[in-house]
Design a protein around this nucleic acid. Structure first.
Length: 951
RNA sequence: GCAGGGGUGCCCGAGCUGGCCAAAGGGGACAGGCUUAGGACCUGUUGGCGUAGGCCUCCGUGGGUUCAAAUCCCAUCCCCUGCACCA
């Protein structure tokens, strides 16, 4: 059988035995969930890590005796698959390429992908298959998808609850929008302009006859410093009608504005050249300002109309300067006389600058003219400075106010008096949709919000966070930051799969908002196939989840009470696992919604955050084709190798890097492990069976004591690591270091085999399989069966370390042997000739006594130790004593004193080993009866002296 | 910009409640053993020097605290991630 077939066999065995069906019983429960996947593509090794971590933890806890629930479902809510289906229908080459070659969808299946429902069905089926092939211990009876009618009832209930508590509100909201698709777009829908922010601009209306010339600005407070208006004489302008007013703006800006002012209509064209030289009236000051030409005005940004504040805006200053020099243009528009009178007006006091900061900024950066690229830098710099430190001056109501404050006041004044308005625009252009269309900012009216800004709600969420375990603890600060920062979240969409907002059916609840407390739904999901969705009214959920508002529907009372008990058994959720980029939304929402809906004792108890996946050092990304599909990895290496690699190469919250070479190394390591039992059989010369094995308590041989010490230490450390989700550390202990110990042990016992050793070997194997079982369950089942273990290893007990088998002295004793071995090696290398005999001298008793003395005194005081040694008559040769004390004074800080050891016996016992390693006869002396080069004096406790005799 | 995390030997990475740290483990490279050979496996080496187990240098950079610093403090440079309506 190939390894794949073996793995399949065990997966089937587990299923047959219903090993992972978890139902309430008398054991302590453990409920762990991981973010359910959005099945819009194939599962790659990055997903593999995400789902393997909870599986390993679930298996570990199961072996510890917990009743563990690890469920799975499909998050099919949302718009992306709709976009995908459309693009497939349009035969978009990029999309087809990705789905054919990255997600490896067969041609005949791909044809059906014009139906979004089919896409999620296809991939969720595939996901389930891959998850089973990975050996995940999921209770599949609880599987559901978020568009199931039962789940939708649950979501409706949830939103009713939130609305009742006043946490749902209504308002307007600007979004990135694709006019072609007629739908809001997220960053992942963009070809260009990812991460571009939406800025709010203030519109200021300047009266000119029956029309308004409408300028857009980030800095409405500078309205008092206006000297003129700018139009681009080479751009097209139009007159539009909007709410009984006539506005003049650029034609290009109208295309954007129409998405925010839905009733605006073009009523005529305007030639900007005809406006130049005319006057408008300042909205707030009633002053008259002339309209002037400027090439820097971008007709596509804002409204294409700009008011000029040369005192505080570098662009305006330099444009005015340019114009004054441009006699040709001035003649053309007959402006020569008026322009001479235009001088900047100072209205913001800025520390470190004089009257006109704009002028200084231009000089500082050496901006040459209005088309100089450095102009942007000057503008941004001054904008930031004046915003942060500027104070208004020389103007009526606002002098002395800080700039941001004045800005808010002036915006309010403009809006209240209808002399201004608000418009949104992108911070950068262009923003282009995947369909190729340039996006705009659109205002969504009647948008529903979840009011995360609500103070009471925030406090509840913070409270919930305070009582939450977070792995790793460092991201707690992140959570605090996000919970505080989150404001109102638009929770409904026009488009996409999902649940309709129960009280306003034109809206669909947005995917991040319908996936916040669904973990509770797992508890009841397994009953839903016997229940008509229509029977699930709000009273049902109120009764099941909140023990309130008694259920009045048609479900059989016994069944109902089972459902309710089941929920109360599993909840609260012990662990929630999710990727780290979801800290700011999904995981925070998870906290918010639980704290809003459930009583305190049902609040979540722990969160684990994942890192990202790299592929040979590069970021993994399906859309860039830089992924390895999980099913391909399984085919190539087997599920256990994939699991083992994913769990051992990085801790869950760190980024892991899939490197083919290291994966191969992992494979070899696993093979070594799975063949270990055969090696033991060979050593023993008889088949292994756990049935004939006697538990180890006392052993005679020191090396056996040592390996028992090591095994128990590894068990202890691996267990502690797993408790904290440190899969990498756990595997360092349970696999790599464990193997190192075994390698050494086997070398150390040489060819010797006796009943004690063979029993110890079985002990090692038995514990090792148990430790490795959560990580490589298939391999372990296979070995477990071979050695006649009872039942499944997946159900076997997790090993517990035995304090009695652990002893520092045992370890130290072996360290002496290892140290000798290393030192002999090193000396051999230095002297460069073959040793004949190796003489080893142990430290005399008096050295132990002095060391003990030194160890007892808190600080290493050389003089004091010598004095005490003399006083206690420890040694007669004072010079030797003093030298020795100086030596150990240095040593003391570098070693741990564990008490006196019988070095002679220790070395005697390892004599054969040392001799074999060194390739020379080894002689141990209690007393230096033969010591031609006086090496014995070098002996210190834990470090016997060596004399190598050559020739 | 704001917030969070990080810079360790050829590479990845542990260590970072100060002292068994020239620094775990893996990968790679080199040497030896085994083998007909290769592979696999095992052992050793992989900062420098050294004919005796030692010494010197070293954990982004500069300074400081301390008997003692990769580990603590200050400054500085660089890198990564998130900042929303999207799963």
């Amino acid at each position: 059988m190939t390894y794949i077939q073996k793995e399949r066999k065990w997966q089937e065995e587990w299923q047959k035995a219903k090993l992972f069906h978890s139902d309430p019983d008398s054991r302590e429960k453990l409920f762990i969930t991981v973010a359910y996947p959005y099945p819009s593509g194939a599962m790659h090794i990055g997903h593999g890590r995400t789902y393997t971590v909870p599986d390993v933890y679930a298996r570990f806890k199961r072996m510890q005796g917990y009743n563990v629930l690890f469920p799975m479902a499909w998050h099919v809510t949302g718009a992306p698959v709709i976009g995908i289906a459309k693009r497939i229908e349009k035969q978009d080459p990029w999309t087809l390429e990705i789905y054919k070659n990255v997600h490896k969808v067969p041609e005949d299946e791909l044809n059906k992908f014009t139906d979004p429902e089919y896409i999620v069905k296809y991939f969720s089926t595939e996901y389930r298959e891959v998850m089973i092939n990975m050996g995940y211990s999921i209770d599949w009876r609880r599987e559901f998808k978020t568009t199931d009618p039962h789940y939708q009832k649950f979501i409706e209930w949830q939103f009713h609850k939130l609305k009742d508590k006043g946490y749902v509100g209504k308002g307007k909201h600007p979004v990135k929008y694709c006019p072609e698709d007629q739908n809001p777009v997220g960053d992942h829908d963009l070809l260009e302009g990812e991460g571009v922010a939406i800025n709010e601009l203030t519109l200021v209306k300047f009266k000119m006859g029956d029309d308004y010339l409408v300028a857009a600005t980030f800095r409405p407070e500078t309205i008092y410093g206006i000297t003129n208006l700018w139009l681009n004489p080479d751009a097209e302008y139009v007159r539009i009608n909007i709410d009984d007013e006539n506005w003049i703006i650029s034609k290009k800006s109208y295309d954007n504005l129409i998405h925010q002012k839905l009733h605006a209509k073009i009523t005529g064209e305007i030639n900007p050249r005809e406006l130049i030289g005319k006057y408008i009236q300042n909205t707030l000051t009633d002053a008259e300002h002339i309209i002037l030409p400027a090439s820097f005005v971008d007709p596509g940004y804002g409204t294409g109309v700009v008011y000029s504040v040369p005192g505080h805006a570098p662009a305006d200053f330099i444009a005015l300067k340019d114009l004054k020099k441009n006699s040709e243009l001035l003649d053309k528009f007959q402006l020569t006389h008026v322009i001479e009178k235009l001088e900047p007006i100072s209205i913001v006091q800025l520390k470190g600058f004089g009257e006109f900061p704009a002028e200084e900024m231009i000089e500082k950066l050496g901006v040459k003219n209005q088309n100089d690229p450095k102009l942007d830098e000057a503008t941004n710099e001054l904008y930031k400075l004046e915003h942060a430190k500027g104070v208004m001056k020389n103007i009526p109501d606002f002098s002395g106010l800080k700039v941001p404050l004045a800005r808010d006041e002036i915006i309010k004044k403009l809006l209240d008096s209808k002399k201004g308005d608000v418009i949104y625009d992108f911070a950068q252009r262009p923003v282009i949709c995947r369909c190729g269309t340039e996006c705009v900012v659109r205002i969504l009216e009647d948008q529903w919000f979840l009011k995360y800004s609500d103070e009471t709600w925030k406090e509840l969420a913070m409270d919930c966070l305070d009582n939450l375990s977070i792995v790793p603890e460092e991201v707690r600060a992140n959570f605090e930051y996000y919970l505080d920062w989150l404001h109102d979240w638009a929770c409904t969409r026009r488009l996409g799969l999902g649940t309709r907002l129960p009280w306003d059916k034109q809206w669909i609840i947005e995917p991040l908002s319908d996936s916040t407390i669904y973990m509770a739904y797992y508890a009841i999901a397994k009953y839903m196939k016997d229940v008509d969705a229509k029977a699930l009214d709000d009273s049902f959920f109120d009764d099941v989840f909140l023990d309130a508002d008694k259920y009045s529907g048609k479900i059989d009372p016994d069944l109902f009470s089972d459902i309710k008990n089941e929920f109360n058994y599993w909840y609260p959720l012990n662990w929630r696992l999710s990727a780290k980029d979801l800290v700011g939304n999904h995981l925070s929402f998870h906290i918010f919604h639980h704290s809003a809906i459930f009583p305190r004792e049902k609040w979540p108890q722990g969160i684990v955050v994942f890192g990202m996946g790299l592929l040979e050092g590069n970021k993994m990304s399906s859309s860039k084709g830089n992924v390895i599909l999980l099913q391909d990895a399984i085919k190539k290496y087997g599920a256990d190798v994939v699991r083992l690699f994913l769990m051992s190469s990085a801790e869950p919250w760190q980024d892991f890097d899939w490197r083919e070479n290291e994966v191969k190394g992992t494979k070899k390591r696993l093979e070594w492990f799975s063949e270990f039992s055969k090696r033991i059989e060979e050593l023993k010369g008889s088949p292994l069976s756990l049935k004939s094995y006697k538990p180890v308590s006392d052993v005679e041989m020191p090396i056996n004591s040592w390996i028992l010490n090591q095994v128990n230490q590894r068990i202890k450390d691996a267990t502690e690591a797993l408790e904290g989700f440190q899969t990498r550390k756990a595997l360092q202990e349970a696999l790599f270091l464990f193997k190192k110990d075994i390698d050494y042990y086997l070398r150390r016992i040489g060819d010797e085999i006796n009943p004690e050793i063979s029993n110890v070997l079985v002990y090692i194997l038995e514990n090792w399989i148990r430790l490795m079982s959560p990580f490589v369950p298939h391999t372990c089942e296979e070995i477990w069966k071979d050695i006649e273990g009872e039942g499944f290893i997946s159900e076997a007990e997790w090993p517990e370390y035995d304090e009695k088998l652990m002893d520092e002295k045992i370890r130290k004793a072996e360290e002496i042997v290892q140290g000798l071995n290393n030192d002999i090696n090193e000396i051999k290398k230095i002297i460069g000739s073959k040793p004949e005999k190796i003489h080893i001298y142990v430290a005399p008793d008096w050295k132990w006594h002095v060391l003990e003395l030194a160890n007892e005194s808190s600080k290493t005081n050389v003089g004091q130790i010598i004095g005490q040694s003399i006083k206690n008559n420890l040694h007669n040769d004072k010079k030797e004593l003093a030298d020795y004390v100086k030596k150990i004074a240095r040593m003391m800080t570098k070693m741990k004193y564990v008490g006196k050891l019988d070095e002679y016996s220790i070395i005697k016992d390892s004599q054969a080993f040392l001799s074999k390693e060194a390739g020379a006869e080894v002689i141990v002396y209690k007393e230096p009866t033969y010591d031609p080069q006086n090496k014995s004096g070098n002996a210190t406790p834990y470090k016997p002296a060596i004399f190598i005799e050559t020739d």
